[in-house]
């Protein structure tokens, strides 16, 4: 998947849809094609609903402490101050807790949408937001199939807030995300995506009566960095199941690829027509029709 993505940028650069490709992309040290994205496996069977991850996330990013309602009947959503939330759902197999945050897609719609590369898929896998580039257009929010980026609507200097998999704070230095580190139920696991999928398969195979046979995120939206396991079908946990299996940026590729062609063909065509019509012009007063 990561290879596809890189090819996509390469092709874009080669065709030069607009001008030169941002030097940054080319200047980035290329690790081997076997570089693998890191991700997190979240096992809702193991999650005990302690909300530790919410507290640790807030303190790791200097965000206000989460407010956990005594009765967890109402579903909370991540917003501009909470990058992750845990909700309890009454399901056919009893109460199940589910953590929610940005999925860190392999081919993120948000990054493809962003016209300044503020939303950015790092080589390591986390999708991060860079404030010095973002112009606050919110196109990433329009495009993200999971509605992950959140915007500070009541600020004169608004930021986009979403899970960054603790890239700056931990992962870059070789650490692991705060939520994973402090998970008391062993429900979170950080590692190379391929290995996480293997581990998830193993868990399903070992306890087929406990797990619902699907890894959410393996193929959704072209594959995501976060992978979910669940005892029940995922719609019971409020996860979006209408997500397409192809990546979202693929939806605009056709259009973007046609741009260079149009740019060459149309002016040539127009010039040709112009030449033809102006030659036929003998009496400019009564032509047309």
């Amino acid at each position: 998947m990561d290879i596809n993505r890189r090819n996509f940028f390469k092709v874009m650069g080669a065709t030069g849809a607009t001008l030169a490709l941002g030097s940054e992309l080319q200047a980035r040290p290329k690790k081997g094609a076997d570089t693998e994205f890191y991700g997190v496996l979240y096992d809702s069977v193991r999650c005990i609903g302690c909300y530790n991850c919410e507290y640790e996330c807030a303190s790791a990013h200097g965000l206000p402490e989460p407010v956990i309602p005594a009765e967890d009947t109402q579903v909370r959503k991540p917003d501009e101050t909470w990058r992750t939330v845990v909700n309890g759902y009454e399901t056919s197999k009893g109460k199940v807790y589910v953590k929610q945050q940005c999925m860190h897609c392999n081919e993120p719609a948000c990054a493809a949408a962003c016209l300044t590369q503020a939303m950015y898929k790092t080589e390591e896998g986390p999708v991060i937001w860079r404030g010095n580039k973002c112009m606050g257009c919110r196109y990433c929010m329009v495009s993200c199939p999971f509605d992950s980026p959140k915007f500070e609507y009541f600020s004169a200097n608004p930021k986009i807030n979403k899970c960054t998999m603790c890239f700056e704070e931990k992962v870059k230095q070789g650490g692991i995300p705060a939520c994973v580190e402090f998970c008391s139920g062993d429900a979170l696991m950080f590692g190379p995506r391929r290995e996480l999928i293997k581990e998830a398969r193993r868990r399903i195979a070992e306890q087929p009566d406990v797990y619902y046979d699907h890894i959410y995120g393996e193929h959704e939206a072209g594959g995501t960095g976060w992978l979910y396991l669940s005892p029940v079908p995922f719609e019971e946990l409020g996860l979006r199941t209408g997500i397409q299996r192809d990546s979202y940026p693929a939806l605009t590729k056709g259009f973007l690829y046609s741009v260079p062609t149009v740019f060459i063909a149309v002016p040539a065509l127009l010039l040709g027509i112009q030449q033809a019509t102006s030659k036929n012009q003998t009496n400019p007063e009564n032509e047309d029709e």
């Binding site: 940028f9 650069g13 607009t18 605009t252």
Partner: peptide, 8 residues
């Protein structure tokens, strides 16, 4: 910062 893959 050229987001060349962006329609916007």
């Amino acid at each position: 910062s050229f987001g060349v893959s962006s329609v916007l």
